[in-house]
Structure formats: structure tokens, C-alpha cells
Write a protein that binds this DNA or RNA. Structure first.
Lengths: 212, 212
DNA sequence: CGGGAAAGTTGTCATCGTCAACATTCTCGG
DNA sequence: CCGAGAATGTTGACGATGACAACTTTCCCG
């Protein structure tokens, strides 16, 4: 202790996080394709080979970003569903949170779904599965376990496609200008869904229709 | 004329297409991130700088692949809608064709939607807009021009999300094992859609329900 | 306190994207 | 028919990158 902060210590302290942060920032600035480990190292104030003490290779670093993204997505979904008891309300909230997440963490979202990252890490696989399982479980709570996979897939497609459109800049600015606008759009589009998820609730719709 | 085929001519003949084909093949084999212009050149039997006579840089080559993909997608959509007169049938067919396209041309599809390709070429922009306009027009034929953008966005989300799930290998094999299976899944999921696109047709659904 | 493990560094190599300079072939106007 | 300029390819070079090996510094625990 009593470390001299004036001259930087040989050890960084938390290089791993610093590299992840630098990578996310760099991807945001110059795009995924331009990302270089050496530039990350430079920005973290460390030599060009230091990253290899924390990541096997570039793909592993990206996988870590993806894993982080899936974790945050799951957390955002859980937070959005918190306090909601109606299954339909819950899965709708997840969908809206999904689009909001994509808007607020565009870099993570891109990395999560570029694929092309080689064989996923166990860590990354676990985080992705957790996010997907939450969706399937939420769907199962509406339509039952048998149809859950199909319904989950159908339901995921909507927020996911929406998120892609927003990130690709193919939506008019009034719908994609802010996180709130994007979320509102998501709520509107999801509200149009009247598939198996909707039918169940249509019968009890009047009982629930008090919020707008 | 009477060209000696035995010793290859100085000029390739159709290098541009050969490079595009090589690039698509290489991406399919090793992933987008591993693509190298030099490897494309090698595979086309040409020196490492030859590609620069046809593409300004690597990004431009990828943009060309994306443009080709959007053109084929538009063509596939048009072919699928051919002969169908009911607006709802037509947009449904487009959606199914969309998923089938993604399954059959996974490399093109990936390149089309990786974004991160820098500023799009005019060519690429035009092809992408054509595909999107076809969708919006098809939606407009169902819900009218006013709601067309919103409905188009909502409707695009479904096949797009579905395609992404299939390409990411997150679907059970019975649904993603073949192009026909994927298309059938798409048809099923799209059939669940009962938003503004569906409501119009629900009134005349009985008149149309003769297939299946 | 001492030795191994962890974390960083320097050096190196093959490969890549890109540019400049040069070579070959095509084509079209005279 | 020919000859010059435009296309198209080639060779060579440069800086940057991902990845590995060997070495150094610091940490931590027995």
C-alpha cells in the first residue's frame, strides 16, 4: 500500500475491464471491422501483447463483450418485468426492454449478433442461453410449455427485427431518435401482435385494460 | 478469337464476378472476419493487387456482395408474390421468401446486415431501398399508405428475426434443417400475425381459406 | 522470506490492406 | 492496318495487425 500513483505501477489493476471498455468504445467510434487489439492496449496504456494475458485472442475478447451484453439484456428484461404479474404484460415488457437495450447499447447488440465469432465460449453460451431461456419461460407462462418454443421464437422475432431496423437507420427519426421513442414504437408494434400469445389474453383483455 | 486456352491469357475475362464468388465462398468457409482480399485474388488465380482494378477497397467489395444480395432478395420476393392477387397473400409470400432467402444465401444475408461496412455505395443503397420499398408497397396495399411504414416495419421484423435465429443456430433442427422446413416455420409464424395486416383480411378470411 | 504464479514487456514473424510504378492487352479513331 | 491511350494485371514496398516466444517485474502464499 501507499502506492505511488505518480509513476504508474507495473500492474494495471483491472486491465481486463479496461480492455473491454476500450474495445466497446473503439467499435463505437470506428466499427467492429476496424477494431484492433493493439489499439485497445494502447488506449489502456499497456503494451501490445498485454491483452493476451486476459484473452486467448481477439475473438475471445469479442465473445466476452457479447457475454456481457447478454447478461445486461437478461438483467434489463428481468428489471422490466419486475412487479408485473400478468404473463402477457411480462413478455411485452421484455420485448420493449429488448428494443431499448439495443438502442442504448448498440455496440454490445451488434457484437452479440454478428455471429462469425467462431466457437462461442462457455461463458458466452451460458449468457446467451440465459437471455433466450428467460424469453421461452415467459412465453411458456402465456401459452404453456408445449407451444413455448414456437411462440418464443415468434415473439422474439419482433423486437429483434425492430432493433435491427433501428440500428441500421432505416426508420424515420421520429421513431428512432431517442430510447423513449424507440421503446414507444416497440410497445406499439408488440401491441399489434395477436398470435397465440394474444389470443389467450384477449379473453381477459377487458379485465386488464385499464392502463394505456 | 482462336485464343489459346492452354496458357492462361493475361486478362482474366470476368475477374469482378470471380472475385465476388471467391469472396462469398471464403466467407462461407472461414467467416466474414477472416476474409482477405489477397486470398480472393489467389483463388481467382490472380495477383494480390488485381482486385483493386475492380473494387476501391475491401469494404466496397463487401458492399457489392450486399447489393447483389438485396437484388436477389427483391427478385425472390417478386417471384414469390407472382400470381397472387390478395394483398395479404402477397405480403405473406414475401415474408416466407425472405426467410427462405436467408437460409439459402446465408453469406449474402450476413453481409447485407452486418452493417459496419462504412458508407454504402450508391449501388448498394439503391438495391437495399428497392427491397425495402417492395415491402412497404406490399404493406400499403393492405393497410393503406398512411400506416404502411409502421405496418411494414412491424411485418419485416418477423421474417428478419426468424432468419437471424435460424442463421444463429438457435432453433431446433426440425425447424431449421432445410429450406423447406424453414419456409414452413416462417409460414406458421407469419400466420400468427394478426396485427393491422391481419385485421383487414379477417373479415374476408373465409373467402380465402381454401388452401392448406 | 523465498519461490512460483500472475501480469506486463520487448522482439519477432507471417499476413494483410493499400499504394505506386511498371507491364500487357484491348480497342477504336485515323 | 496501326498506333496510342485506356483497361487490366503484376511486382514491390510500407505500415499495421494478430499471434507467439522469451524475458522481467510484481504479487502472494506457504
Amino acid at each position: 500500500m501507499a502506492r505511488r500513483r505518480a509513476q504508474k505501477p507495473y500492474h494495471h489493476g483491472d486491465l481486463r475491464s479496461a480492455l473491454l471498455d476500450a474495445a466497446v468504445a473503439l467499435i463505437g467510434e470506428h466499427g467492429l471491422a476496424q477494431l484492433s487489439l493493439r489499439e485497445c492496449a494502447r488506449r489502456a496504456g499497456v503494451s501490445h501483447a498485454a491483452p493476451y494475458r486476459h484473452f486467448a485472442d481477439k475473438a475471445t475478447l469479442l465473445l466476452a463483450i457479447a457475454a456481457e451484453g447478454f447478461s445486461r439484456l437478461t438483467a434489463a428484461g428481468l428489471a422490466a418485468m419486475e412487479g408485473l404479474t400478468h404473463p402477457r404484460d411480462r413478455i411485452d415488457a421484455y420485448g420493449v426492454a429488448y428494443v431499448r437495450f439495443a438502442f442504448e447499447h448498440p455496440v454490445h447488440f451488434r457484437v452479440m449478433f454478428t455471429g462469425e465469432l467462431g466457437e462461442p465460449t462457455m461463458e458466452a453460451q451460458r449468457c446467451a442461453d440465459a437471455a433466450f431461456d428467460l424469453l421461452i419461460d415467459s412465453a411458456a407462462a402465456v401459452v404453456g410449455a408445449d407451444a413455448a418454443t414456437l411462440a418464443g421464437v415468434a415473439f422474439w422475432s419482433i423486437p429483434h427485427g425492430l432493433a435491427m431496423l433501428i440500428l441500421d437507420g432505416r426508420l424515420p427519426p421520429e421513431h428512432a431518435g431517442s430510447a423513449d421513442a424507440a421503446a414507444a414504437l416497440a410497445r406499439a408494434v408488440i401491441g399489434m401482435w395477436r398470435g397465440p400469445l394474444g389470443r389467450v389474453d384477449d379473453e381477459e383483455a377487458k379485465a386488464t385494460a385499464r392502463d394505456t
